[in-house]
Design a protein around this nucleic acid. Sequence first.
DNA 1: AAAAAAC
Length: 765
Amino acid sequence: MPKNKKPRGGRPAANFEPRYGAKKTSFHDRHNGGPARDGARDERGARADAGDRRSAPAAGGYDRRPGSRSAGHRGYRPAEAESGAPKQRWNASERAGRDEARGIRNRAESGRREAPHHRNDERSERPRYNDRPSVGGRFDDRPRRDDRGGQRPTGQRPTGPGTYRDERGGDRPRFDRDDRSRRDDRGAGTQRQGFRDNDHRDGGRPVRDDRRGGGERPRFNSDRGAERPRFNSDRGTERPRFDRDERPRRDDRGGDRARSNDRGADRGGERSYDADRARRAFDRDRTQRSYEGGRDERSRPSTGGAYRTERPRPLTSDTRGRPARNERPSRNDWNATGRPESTGAKFTPGDDVVHERLEAKSVAAVEVDGVTFGDLGLGSNIVDTLVGMGAATPFPIQAASIPAVLAGRDVLARGRTGSGKTIAFGAPLVERVLQSQAGKRREFGRSPRAIILAPTRELALQIDRTIQPIARSVGLFTTQIYGGVPQGRQVGALKKGVDIVIGTPGRVEDLINQGKLDLSDCRIAVLDEADHMCELGFVEPVQRILRHTADGSQKLLFSATLDREVAALVDEFLVDPAVYEVAGEDQDSSTIEHRVLVIEHRDKADILTSLVDRAGKTLVFARTRAYADMLAEQFDDAGIPAVSLHGDLNQAKRTRNLERLTSGRVNVLVATDVAARGIHVDDIDLVVQADAPDEYKTYLHRSGRTGRAGRSGRVVTLITRQRQRRMTELLDRAEIDAPFENARLDDDVIEEIAGRVPTAADLTA
DNA sequence: AAAAAAC
């Protein structure tokens, strides 16, 4: 009851209007040819009610009827009746009801996956069309391909560009933000649930339970603040250089690197960071193409575990007839500044700048053979937990960074997507927090000792899912602090006392300013996707947050594309950082196949539908939120269950839609770049870029959603002829070779990519 | 220009 407060006037306005208003409207106008029937109302007017509805489920029946038919019910309002605003409610629930009536449910019922009404919630209740039924049963059995193959030839789908608008326009209210927002958090069952799961505390255990671990652990150094002095003495020399200017030439560096036994390395020092290993400039970069000649000659270390010095690059020209990489224009050619050194400083925004790489110690897989997490310095509880999570032995990036983190050093680490970075910083972070508290009681209301910042809420949630069990295994608590959800629970957790905070910059800073989050005792700060966190708009809040952490707090910066974009932050906050990368991370050692389809714009919609009409999980990237929504709807209408993920959705929907892909209830997720970084879904085997990315880093991160932890994956990017040049340059910067193929709707290449027919490679293999 | 990140 309480939950269902009626319209909470204030809230809806706050939430929705600012964000959605303009955009949505325009979408509707364009596509619906007029005010969407329900949609229009939903968007705006209904909002007020949204609150109610949302809660309604809790109170009464979530299932279907918007409950409000009866005058007594809070949901009941004139508005609902069709007058105006309230209409909204109607949408979610009612539509569900309507859908059922249409028999949609029948189809789904047989399916194990998702109930129709569910879908509705999610996708803003789009009306289902009758034509869809033809695809009966598709909801359930994934093997949709099979059933549909005949029935839904690509060509006949009503999805041509523009079709969506005409055909469905009028009736498709699917964009209502309200709906989405409606459930927002507040109270809705699902959301809460999500919340709850993540909050370890909610597991129901009393706050202080389980604090056993603390005392028992060997306490190396209890307090890192004190001991974390930077040992310039021994590390100074070998410390990776961050300075652009004084960066020694590759040749000379061998020498100083000799002393690589820093504490971080001691455990693995011998095995991994040898003096003789040239300090690979990881970066040697792209900027200095001139050096590349030499690089090419080197042999590829990836196999042998040799330390990679340079990224081997294919000399042959690719299928497109482009010149071999070496001959292609260098970064300098396109880089407006032309100053490789200018890194950290912002270049012209908008430019796809390739920052100079960071020099780093490189660790190869072979070097960590036989090494265990225990060997790296982690306690047994943590090791056992990792094993339980499936991480039996450390990946290279983990073997490299764990000892350094445990030694209290600031660390910069680069490991390609899916290489295990979360555990690389998470496990040693937990160990250190534990050590710092050894012997102390975990007091009620204690302030956090560590904070992990991520660029998106989904990523923060995901990181917590990985770290929480590790922390819990030693009696430490974590909590998530991110926006889009009520802060009450988060503040409550903080009041009880947590050890590790994982969150996004906005809410974290908000709570700091409200005096509800005290980072003064925070001794470790982690920036995941660090380079992204250093981009314009993100870096300022991040800097302010870091300034709130304890003096001399340890900083850990991780990213698959870590480069000198983080220089400004490093200069201010890091002291003598250890920098690591993994050897042999080049395309040749990757498990991802890249392809570019050059298409006619008019075929785009149909080609996309054809591409996602497959058995495996597919992640589609769109440049804008509206297009992501549109595509999801398009696929759905074509009989391919799909959901979207972008910033216009309320957090509950964001979380739910992502979960739908993870759980396999849908096989297609259409997202904006909110899902480009960090998100891990086990078995995405195809990434489709409906819109080519503007930056090479974005390309690398998006494509990194597949091919994780050694699995194979495929990435296809759709471009029009006019974009070929830009795409070529982008791939160059990403150091990826991908064939460009002209494709039309029914070409075999599409069938191949979708996996409906074996590829040439498959056949030969 | 877009997206993300607080209310």
